[in-house]
Nucleic acid binder design. Sequence first.
DNA 1: CTGTTAGCGCCTTCAT
DNA 2: ATGAAGGCGCTAACAG
Lengths: 341, 341
Amino acid sequence: MKATIYDIAKKAGVSIATVSRALGENRDKVKPETREKIYNICKELDYSPNSIAKYLAKKTTGSIGLVLPEIQGDFYTEIIKGVDEISYSGGYNLLVASSHSRRNIVESILGFMKESMVDGVVLMIPSMNKQIESILSKYQIPVVIISDMEGFDEYDKVSIDNYQGAYSITEYLIKTLGHTKIATICGPEENFDAQKRKKGYIDALKDAGLPIEKRWIVESDFTIKGGEIACSRLLSLKEKPDVIFAANDNMAAGCYNTANLLGYKIPEDLGVVGFDHVAFCDFLKPKLTTVHVQVSEIGRVSTNLLLERLSNKNKEDRPPKHLKISTGIIIGNSVIKKTTN
Amino acid sequence: MKATIYDIAKKAGVSIATVSRALGENRDKVKPETREKIYNICKELDYSPNSIAKYLAKKTTGSIGLVLPEIQGDFYTEIIKGVDEISYSGGYNLLVASSHSRRNIVESILGFMKESMVDGVVLMIPSMNKQIESILSKYQIPVVIISDMEGFDEYDKVSIDNYQGAYSITEYLIKTLGHTKIATICGPEENFDAQKRKKGYIDALKDAGLPIEKRWIVESDFTIKGGEIACSRLLSLKEKPDVIFAANDNMAAGCYNTANLLGYKIPEDLGVVGFDHVAFCDFLKPKLTTVHVQVSEIGRVSTNLLLERLSNKNKEDRPPKHLKISTGIIIGNSVIKKTTN
DNA sequence: CTGTTAGCGCCTTCAT
DNA sequence: ATGAAGGCGCTAACAG
């Protein structure tokens, strides 16, 4: 059986209150000698306080929850990693729950909230969900949202700067490479990242004085297959684009496949750029030009915000922060400079 | 303030014991009417039991811990996913701790164990660590080990069948494709997976009556860079191999890079096969022939074993199980049939 | 079928 | 500087 505070107290000839003090915040209110004695006995008995009991008494759990829409691909690994690192340094344990066939995002949140499992949660919301808002307002624990959505402004929010990333790479195609015939394959309409990326694309064209061709904006689903289909759609247009901006790398890879299949050479016959800079980009031939995202930074930043809130719990709250993680462009060989024909 | 069991009891005009019963294992020992009444009040007050308190009273936490050596790449995502799915279906929360710059594997384990945070742990051990054994034996909670190591036989162990995978793909190179000059790039010596893969390679050669060339066995570190260096080493030999079996896909990708750089064409001048079947394999040109591993299955299987143990806690223990997840070969275009010269 | 009561292990006033 | 005692919210005998 594991040693409890009583064992230590008895062996040290003091009361449990003293042991508790010697080990907690107010070490200094215990006479150095008895403190020392207690430490030694703790070591001897390999004692450490039972967190469950501690947290029951203190009304905090010492854990934070991370709610993910899914766990797939290294994007989520990076998020988890970032959150894990920071929560650890803050002395918190990390509980992870993701949606899958048997659990949706709402259940994940409720699981943490209702049962008081965590002191705060980092919540990733990829697309609209009405229930979430009412749930969050009902339970009063700190929440940081990872999402590029509008609304929820009373919460801390963190996301990559989808808009800026899309705008930049489109602008790069136009200004640096001289392209004018640029199509895009968007992500799912309800997905916030997809929305922002589309907007960045459109605004970059507008700002450059280029027309927005509806036929050159096709919606897809962020998968490779989806990219393949969308690409063949674009290539079958009478007026074909010279470059395709795929809203993520998966779909860009899909474009590679389709181009390959139909006999278009990248970058000569068709340029392709992506978004995310996932691991396989460097293995595509030719190397994909894409938008680089520091994913683990999202995890780190959001967790820092959460810990900030948690440590401030009683004091007056600071106003919510809304942060964007900036992006960069990775130049590959998947687009060439537009030749004046 | 959140409702407690007392609020429900008061409002229902019963004792807290009855409420507790109505909500717990022995629902049936409560009169249906009062049970119904209690349910309604719970809903009305949006009550759910505080897990922390519950677990203090029951001496179990309702959580399991997952200890990872690192979180990087989609290998770990798949593990987490598998564990998450199963632990959820078993009604357990999932705590994740991975090693990183500020925390090693031992600290991760101790974090869970000492503070009684979890009822059991899934522990991934990629390489030898002496401390682990003594720690595990000290704390008596169920542990399932994910590792292809020898020893620790008193614990449930799960791993992919590294040996079989390596043996099979080597045998495939020999018997199906007719190769005889096969080199290998191993992973780190202390890594268990690497050890088994090397052994599989060696035994397949032996069983086919082929000699083991020391020069054709080079150790590396499972990284792309490492694969590049090892490959150039092999290609600089006077007696060059025809095919390289890289012990993971990263290193296989490194071989692609080096081959490319030095002017060798894959598969004509050099064959390459890998291990793991990570996402980018399908994007390599030519497509990589590699060993497929069902990673999420590892997570699922090991968690199932853990839950099995947890549900049996008081009854007599079953003997430990040691399971291997079988592998398969993904045929790409990175090796050709040996032409009889 | 239901209520009473004693913990679970720790923290935290309130006294001393 | 230390001890005694009352919770935290819930479960689990033990009575009735």
